[in-house]
Every structure is written in structure tokens, then in C-alpha cells.
Amino acid sequence: MRDDAAELTLGPVWFNWKPADWRDFYFRIADEAPVSTVYLGEVICSKRAPLFEPHYEAVTERLRAANKKVVFSTLAEVMLKHDRQMVDSVCTADDVPVEANDASALFYLQGRPHHVGPFMNLYNEETFAVLAQRGAQNFCLPAELPAPAIRALCEATQALDATIEVQVFGRLSLALSARCYHARAHGRTKDSCQFVCENDPDGLELRTLDGSPFLIVNGIQTLSQDYLNLIGELPELGALGVSRFRLSPHTCDMVRVASSFRAVLDRHITAEEGTDQLEALNLSAPFSNGFYHGKPGYSWIASVAR
């Protein structure tokens, strides 16, 4: 991979931000963040989706005016009637590229160029071949894939004319459920939730019984408490053949995050300097990179020190 081919992307916001904050976040991304593609769309909860609808048009226009490609990302778990209607309407709109996060979206996207998202079980070259034949052009890998599997996938994908994208920043999505754990924490159910998830713009922290921060609840999604940070692995990922690097949005300064990653990709600063810049964000949780190194996901392997 040539370094100038490396693209930085921004994944969809997984959390239930206040709609005005959500809109302003994207306006600022459009104006200031060095990302080439922005994934929009509610991927966690179909109940939340209408909250953001009034702002989609303005956000999309602003991003496109800034020369950023906009891709709509579909729901990760599709079960109820309303979920299904959402996927249907996103996938059958012909003016936006779509990222499929479950098999029902793939059902609609047959024969059309599309992206396949990190909630799909994209583990091997045979799966890639099936999906590429149906129109998949970009694969965002599941977070738990270790480096040897990423390497093998990159080699196999060269023949497919598709690109590989890897999440390099943000909390890791670890599980989905039919039950809303945010509602459960507040003694409510998914139906009676009153959107209580809006109080936790980076998710609700679960601690173990000995007080250690462990997991993060976001509606039906369970995430890691720590923030994935592969800034030190960027050169290696590029050498493997990964060409797109995804940042997952949080309330921290994502423009600064994007700028640090872009600067390392462009070799304006070293990975060590990039790491220092990210540490200066003073996030509430540590960094992790264990999955990439074949270790427990929460682990931090100081690869930058080489």
C-alpha cells in the first residue's frame, strides 16, 4: 500500500447523543477533521432513529460540501417490524452508498455496490469472495480479528478489487442482545425506556464487584471500557494491505484524534508522537490493542516502543 492511499474514516455514532449535539459534531467534522468518509446512521436502536432524522439532510450536505463521502450504515440487529422497515428504506434509496451490518441488508443490496460493516461476521477469504461477488467493495473487519487473519484477508482481497477497513480508535463493540441493558439498569424495558441512554453519551459503565471498570452498556450493545488505539500499529497495518482506518466517535475531541492519526499516516509525526498526543486527551479509560496482538482484548501491548 502506498501511504498516500491510506484513508481515514469516521464510523457511525453508536450512542444516543442529543440531536443538536449530534448535528454540531458532524458540522465540525465536515469543517475540520481530516477524514475522507463519514458513516452516518443509527446502527444500535431503531427507536432512536427518528430523533436524528430532522438533521440528516443538513449534515449530509455539509459533509459532502467538504468533499467527504457519506455512507449510510444499517442497523446491527434487525428483528422487529420497525427495524425491518428501517433497513428496507435505507437499502432501497438509490442515492446513498450503504454499509450493511446484518444479513437482511445484504438481502436488499444484491448486485449493488456496497460496504459491509464491522457487525457482520467477516472472518475469512471465502466469506469475502461470496460477498464481493454480490457487490461488496469495502469490508470493515470485526474488532476481534488478530493480525495473522488480517494479513491473510488482505492477501486474498487483492484479487477481489475490494478494500479493507479496520477500526483503529474507540471503544470496542463486544456484544449485541435483544434486550436493552440501559433500560434494565434503570428498571425499565426496551418499550418503556424513555430514552434513558441519552444520559450516557459514551455509554454506562459497569464495574465488577471488586470495583474494577469492566464493560460499557449502550442500549442493546455491550462495549469495552477501554478505548481501542492502534495508532502504533498503523505502519504495520498499512504494510499488511489495510487501506482504510476507522475512528469510532466519542465525546472526546475527535478532530484532534483524527488529526493525530492523519499525521502518523502521512509520516509528519512518528507513532510515538501520535501516542503522546492521544494520551494528552486524558480519556476516562485506558487504551487497548489486545485483539490485534492475539491477546485478551483489554490488553495493551506497547508496540510503539520498538
Partner: peptide
């Protein structure tokens, strides 16, 4: 409780 085939919690804790 987690959706089958979509859970990395064990890997997160154990590798």
C-alpha cells in the same frame, strides 16, 4: 443473553 455468533466478551477477557 447475547445474540449468538455476535459476542466477543470471552475473547475480550481471555484471548
Amino acid at each position: 443473553m447475547m445474540a449468538e455468533g455476535r459476542c466477543s466478551l470471552t475473547n475480550y477477557a481471555t484471548g
